[in-house]
């Protein structure tokens, strides 16, 4: 019922198809470790239940918050600087994802297994399938699209809204006829959802770091390293996602 009401609100409120081409979107990224672990091929039903019973009811997973700054042709996706809540600060992995939709290039700074890499190259085309479902995220009606993770071979679902006329999204995903406001990796392993969308009338300056250090690497090679690690970990019956970003 709540869904219907919000749908109706959206229908009557979106009279103006506006200049929603500059702004900041806040995303929350939540990994469900129980689900991730449950799908590892070496886990038995008994072990899965044991973990779910022991840890499944913990509600302390608040996820991590990210921000996507976007203008008409470019976007940057970074972890949100937050005041630390527990009086303890952990070292964070580097994660800067820059997309230039006009030039069709990327400039990413990402960590993998203790090393920082720079991926600066042409954007590959993401092969999207358009599905028939719709859903509301952060006040926007979104359509569903699907692609296959090039490394894990699992399904990725994106929820995009054609109301935001920029073809980008979080975690470097892009290429749908509207902004991606939700991403779901492999059913329920990781869920990234927009929590707040703020538009700017004027084009905004993207907070691109002045220096991005790291070893230059081609995306295919980076993905190859990742795949090798995942395969080896699974062979050795370890959860690879303790060590690498899902």
């Amino acid at each position: 019922m709540r869904y219907l009401i919000s749908l109706l609100i959206i229908i009557f409120c979106t009279a103006v198809y506006g200049q929603k081409r500059n702004g900041i979107i806040e995303y929350n990224r939540k990994s469900d470790w129980i689900n991730i672990m449950s799908k590892l091929p070496f886990m038995t039903k008994e072990e899965i239940d044991r973990n779910r019973l022991t840890w499944g009811n913990r509600e302390d997973n608040k996820g991590e918050n990210y921000q996507l700054y976007f203008n008409e042709g470019k976007s940057i996706y970074i972890q949100k600087e937050e005041e630390n809540e527990y009086g303890y600060s952990w070292r964070k992995d580097e994660y800067v994802i820059i997309r230039d939709y006009d030039e069709k290039t990327c400039h990413d700074q990402v960590d993998l297994l203790g090393k920082t890499y720079i991926i600066q190259e042409e954007l590959p085309r993401i092969k999207w399938k358009i599905l028939n479902e719709i859903k509301e995220i952060a006040g926007f009606l979104c359509m569903k699209a699907e692609t296959i993770d090039p490394v894990k071979g699992t399904k990725i679902h994106a929820w995009f809204s054609d109301e935001i006329n920029v073809y980008g999204g979080p975690e470097g995903y892009y290429g749908l006829p509207g902004m991606i406001l939700g991403l779901v990796f492999n059913e329920d392993d990781v869920i990234i959802e927009a929590t707040k969308v703020t538009f700017n009338d004027e084009p905004i300056e993207l907070p691109i770091p002045s220096k991005m250090k790291g070893k230059q690497i081609a995306r295919t090679e980076f993905e190859g390293k990742m795949k090798k690690f995942i395969d080896e970990s699974i062979e050795g019956r370890k959860n690879p996602f303790w060590q690498i970003r899902y």
Binding site: K127, W128, K129, I130, L131, L176
Partner: peptide, 11 residues
């Protein structure tokens, strides 16, 4: 308006 492949609805 989306132009899709009929076989698998790839955009």
């Amino acid at each position: 308006v989306l132009l899709l492949e009929k076989s698998d609805s790839t955009m």
